[in-house]
Write a protein that binds this DNA or RNA. Structure first.
Lengths: 95, 95
DNA sequence: TTGTAGACTAGCGTCGACA
DNA sequence: CTGTCGACGCTAGTCTACA
């Protein structure tokens, strides 16, 4: 592991990188969207994911930063992959 | 919001769904892979992501369940999207 | 049905040190 | 350079209750 060959990797903040909070937003957006597609209520999703109702509400409002373990549980309840939870919206409303 | 139209959505545990812990594993796998591609050490990635060295080590060993905010920071440091962190491996060595 | 507040527990995430 | 233990602060996550 000769990482010493690695030159100075920038500083520690790549401006071109993703903006902070996008993950939380994407998660919330996809969460509401997917949940609406199932026609489930927050309570239903909470039951399916085995989490609490208040927690689901907070995640959708982006007032809470969920952990991987729970994000996976949410995706699992929605029948989707964990990766799609952070996927950008399918496409904007064209009409 | 007439979620009442939604009948019994299974029970609460879809066996066909993703197995528990895949997210943690995928994150660890991609983390090591991406980090190796950059030729960075755990310490370097820790510096880039603004996180602690011990935390990076734990995540790679799957002994820790990181939160979205930190996963995004990791992906950010690696210059990739948060979704790719949970993406399955490209493909195994065919040789 | 959903949002929010308050209190509580469990675990995340940091730091320092050693193998 | 990397893995791991001990201690500590902070907040994720739960539960109850009200608007």
């Amino acid at each position: 592991m000769s990482a010493t060959e690695s030159p100075s990797p920038s500083a520690h903040a790549t401006a071109s990188a993703t903006a902070p909070g996008v993950a939380r937003r994407l998660l919330a957006l996809n969460l509401v969207r997917l949940r609406a597609q199932r026609g489930w209520s927050q309570e239903a999703l909470a039951h399916e994911s085995g989490l609490h109702r208040t927690f689901i509400a907070h995640v959708e409002r982006q007032v809470r930063n969920a952990s991987i373990d729970n994000v996976e549980r949410l995706a699992n309840a929605l029948g989707v992959s964990v990766a799609v939870m952070f996927q950008p919206p399918p496409d904007p409303p064209a009409g």
